[in-house]
Every structure is written in structure tokens, then in C-alpha cells.
Simulated scan of single mutants.
Amino acid sequence: MSATQRLPSSSSAGPEIHPLSPALGARVQGVDASRPLPAATLKRLLEAWHAHGVLYLPNQSLDELEQVRFGENFGELATTQGEYAISKGHPAIMYITNEKQDGQYIGALPDGEMFFHSDMCYVEKPSMATMLYAMSIPKTGGNTLFANMYKAFDALPAATRQHLAGLKAVNSYEPGTSAPTAAMRLSSSRASDQVRSYAQPVVCTHPVTGRKALYVNRLMTEYIVGMPREESDALLESLFDHQEQPEFIYEHTWTPGDLLIWDNRCMLHARGDFDASELRKLRRITVKGERIS
């Protein structure tokens, strides 16, 4: 499907849904996310989400509870980790921001570059979906990049796909120093008092689409279970380089009012660096998921 071809709508009054890029994603027009959605509109959105992995709804105006209500269309919402629960309106709300009060950051992931990853991949039941709503954006930088893990898997040689079948890899929130790319991994001024990690399949099968996707990432995947470390490191590095090729990636330049929701089971995301002196503030919610298989 070309990047300019319009997908069919269920009715003339339904949402307009256009492919966002050759790699992934769909741009949605004609939907006000602050209002309850008709059943036919919701059906169209879910179909487009499963088909394209990322939905982009521009020009939205959402308060906390309106964003929560829209997010609930995709599933049960997860509760924000306690250290980031600054919202008084709803426990699912998290702010991704470099905003400070009394000299201290008040939100999560305040600044800096963040490498490709899948949210909560270090727990038994990772997030199914993540939604970000842009409130304040720097003049330049801080873009979010998405990588299509369906396409990354499909592009692997058949022998590699066969080799990966049945393998598991440990994903960790705070990787050890022996990880292959430890110097580039997640850093946080609010480190937890224990390492959070879980072994996930290297290749997963999406429960709705039935498609296979790579489920490793440069930020949090440490090693492949049962494989000598040197061999594991080499294989992971080759997979990281493969999945980050430009043909699998869409880079989103934020504008206040943008609303994006992505499928965490088949899309990776990353963040570009930005000027820490400029305010960057986005509101996040996540949708609970099931075991990856």
C-alpha cells in the first residue's frame, strides 16, 4: 500500500485513516479523542491499530480523564509506578517531562536520548500499548522514533529465523555491567532498590494478527538464556543493528496536541536528544498486557 493511498472508511462520516510512512503507522483524521467514540469508529481504529502498529491523531485537546477514557478503548489501563504518580486525577497517568519543582524533577524520564525498547519488557506481562499526548515540546529535538518489528523479523534470513525459534532473552530495567551495550542502557536518577528482569521470547507471535515480531531491544535486552555470553552478545548486537535499519523506522516530530498510541508487542520506540533547558512535557498512559508468547 502506498503512503498516499487512503484506507476505506466504514462510512462517509467515519474517520479518515492514511498510512503514516512506508515503515509503519497510520494518521487518523476526523476523530475527537476527548469524546466517547461510536462503536463503528472504535472498530475502525482498532483495525487500523492492529494493521499499522501506531496511530497518530493530530490536533487533540485532552485533559487527564479524557485521555484515560480514550485509552480504555484499547484495554484495561495499568497503574503508574508509585515514584512517578504525580497526577491527582487518575492512577494511570504518568508525565514524561523535565519539569522541576523545588529543583527536583517531578516526572519520569526527564531528559536525554533513549535507545530503542519495548515498555515493561522486563516483567512477566509487559504493557500491551502506550499512549503519549504532547503538551509542551522543545523547538528542536526530542523526537520519538518507532521501529516495525514485524518487518524486521520478516527481513531476516530464513536460517536466522529458524535459529531464533524457541530462544528466550533476559530483559532488565537496570542491566548489569556485563551487558553487551551496558554503557548505552537506561539510566535514571530514581534507581529502584532491586533489579527488575524477566526472560521473554526472542520472537513473539501477536495474539490478534498472528504475525511474528522480534522481541529484543538495545536498551533492555541483556543476554540470551542458555547461550555462551560471547555468542549471545554477538547475536544480540547483530539483531539490534538489523532492527534499527531506516526502512523499518518512522520518526515523529511532536507538535502540542499530538496523540500517539502504539502496539508495544510489535513496535519498538526510542527518543532523540533535546535541549534540557527547554520544557518537554507529555502525558502517558499504558494498557495492561498478557504474557508474551
Rank of each mutant, 00 (worst) to 15 (best):
H242M: 06
E222G: 01
N143G: 01
N171E: 04
T253K: 13
V225T: 11
Y223C: 05
P207H: 00
L260R: 10
E231L: 09
L164Y: 02
V54G: 03
D119Y: 06
L259Y: 07
A169Y: 12
E72R: 15
R161H: 08
S192M: 10
K212Y: 04
E230R: 10
K139E: 13
P36S: 01
W254T: 01
L235M: 14
P180M: 08
D154F: 01
A276K: 14
L259H: 02
P15V: 14
H269W: 04
Q162K: 09
T140M: 03
D233Y: 08
V54S: 02
S277W: 08
P201A: 08
T144R: 11
Y173G: 10
H269Y: 05
S2T: 13
D32R: 09
E83T: 15
M184N: 11
Y250W: 08
R271N: 04
T130Y: 03
L186E: 13
G176D: 13
I292Q: 13
E247D: 09
P175Y: 02
D241W: 03
N73E: 04
R211T: 00
T181S: 13
P180V: 09
L282T: 01
P207I: 01
K288W: 00
T209G: 00
P8M: 00
E72T: 07
A152H: 04
S127M: 08
H90W: 03
L20F: 11
Y95R: 15
H242E: 03
Q5E: 13
Q104P: 01
R291M: 07
M94Y: 09
E251H: 04
P91M: 09
P36D: 07
S178L: 10
T221H: 05
Q81I: 14
Y198A: 08
V31Q: 02
T4Y: 11
G210T: 00
R27G: 06
L268R: 12
A191H: 08
H90E: 03
H269A: 03
G257R: 06
R6Y: 10
E47T: 09
P36G: 02
D102C: 05
Q245P: 04
T97V: 02
E16D: 12
L186T: 13
Q81D: 14
D275V: 01
S293M: 14
L164G: 00
D193I: 12
E47D: 14
T255Y: 12
R211S: 02
V28K: 00
D263I: 09
A3D: 14
F70M: 07
R196W: 12
M149L: 08
Y173K: 14
D32A: 05
A155F: 09
M227D: 11
G166F: 04
S10A: 13
L45T: 02
E174F: 06
E72W: 08
A134S: 10
Q81V: 10
E230P: 03
D102R: 10
E231D: 13
S293T: 12
L77A: 00
I93Q: 01
L45F: 07
L239K: 11
P8G: 06
H117C: 05
R161K: 15
S21E: 00
Q101F: 12
G226A: 09
F274K: 00
S277V: 05
S188H: 08
S178V: 07
L235W: 00
T140S: 14
D102M: 13
S118E: 06
I285M: 05
M114L: 15
P201K: 06
L214H: 02
K288G: 10
L236A: 01
R283H: 07
E231T: 10
V170S: 15
F153I: 05
F115W: 05
